[in-house]
């Protein structure tokens, strides 16, 4: 397959203040990135380690979209499921039903990515931290298989002190080709207020990647290269229901657009449009028909003209 969405899949369910749980929603960084790739191309697959129960939860979506399961390794009984517990005052916490160890056990390894890549594979998406041993192995895999990589920065967690945070990014980012982060993460890494897009983008431009998708929440996103930054405001496809996975899906879509050779304006349009489709429901886009794929391409061309004032020519 030409494109691979690699990494964790995980589901969640909401529990109200009375302990009543809602339905299970499938997701996780790699899965949302997969849905994004599938919106633009059928030449893609999921690369992950899963619980044996993935078939009952993710299986029907995979089958509906004709996606290969060849790189899904079943390694435990259960996929990761988080329960989001809402309190009466509106605050909430989350808990992993099968434990955080299960999540770590199912994390995708460089060796798995290597095994999943075929001769025609061009690029892969992965949400990942900055562990240097992991990245060293990833570099070997990339070089061996001649792959491009989109790195979505893994969200820092409570107690996850990154220490010399910017240096730790610099230690590994040269191995990635594309990067994606949001304004909270950027503000933390660069010590710049998150509203200050210009200064943050200046810092991003100094880093050795071809393209960065810099996501600024509801406002939209920038496609940043070493020499330019193009802004596109967020795009409403229909009603905005649930933003979960918008960062992952826009990142996956940006990787596709960049590796297809599209210019930064089209990259950010494709990313934001994908988020627009993702936000229209809880969980993934339920069914990506050929008509929806065509509709997405048509809208992309329209938005491209809107932000550049030019006709899109590939």
């Amino acid at each position: 397959m030409k494109y691979m969405a690699c990494g964790n899949i995980m589901s969640d369910m909401v529990e109200d203040a009375h302990g009543v749980r809602g339905p299970l929603h499938i997701g996780g960084p790699a899965f949302f990135a997969l849905t994004a790739l599938r919106l633009w191309t059928k030449d893609c697959k999921l690369v992950c380690q899963a619980g044996a129960d993935y078939d009952a939860t993710y299986g029907s979506w995979m089958d509906l979209h004709g996606l290969s399961r060849e790189s899904i390794r079943v390694e435990a009984d259960h996929c990761t499921v988080h329960v989001l517990k809402y309190n009466e005052d509106g605050s909430y916490g989350h808990q992993s039903i099968y434990g955080s160890q299960n999540l770590g056990y199912l994390k995708t390894t460089p060796e798995h990515i290597e095994a999943a890549a075929s001769d025609d594979t061009v690029g892969f998406y992965l949400a990942q931290n900055q562990d240097k041993v992991f990245w060293k192995k990833l570099e070997e895999v990339k070089n061996k298989k001649n792959l491009k990589m989109m790195w979505e920065l893994e969200v820092p967690k409570p107690g996850d002190n990154l220490g010399d945070k910017l240096q730790r990014i610099k230690d590994v980012i040269h191995i990635a080709d594309m990067w994606s982060l949001n304004s909270n993460e950027a503000s933390y890494i660069f010590d710049i207020p998150k509203e200050n897009d210009e200064d943050i983008i200046n810092e991003i431009m100094k880093l050795p990647v071809e393209m960065t998708l810099y996501r600024v929440g509801k406002r939209g996103a920038y496609a940043v290269t070493p020499s330019t930054a193009v802004f596109c405001e967020s795009i409403d496809v229909t009603e905005s229901i649930d933003p979960t996975g918008c960062g992952n899906s826009s990142t996956g879509a940006a990787m596709w657009a960049h590796l297809e050779g599209l210019d930064p304006a089209m990259v950010v349009v494709v990313a934001n449009l994908t988020a627009g489709y993702n936000v229209a429901q809880v969980g993934p886009i339920p069914y990506i028909s050929d008509e929806i794929m065509e509709d997405a391409r048509r809208r992309a061309v329209e938005y491209y003209k809107k932000i550049t004032g030019k006709e899109f020519v590939k």
Binding site: S100, Q101, K107
Partner: peptide, 11 residues
């Protein structure tokens, strides 16, 4: 530690 210890123990 690059991520929470239980997750790391799992990895």
């Amino acid at each position: 530690n690059t991520y929470l210890y239980a997750e790391k123990i799992g990895y």
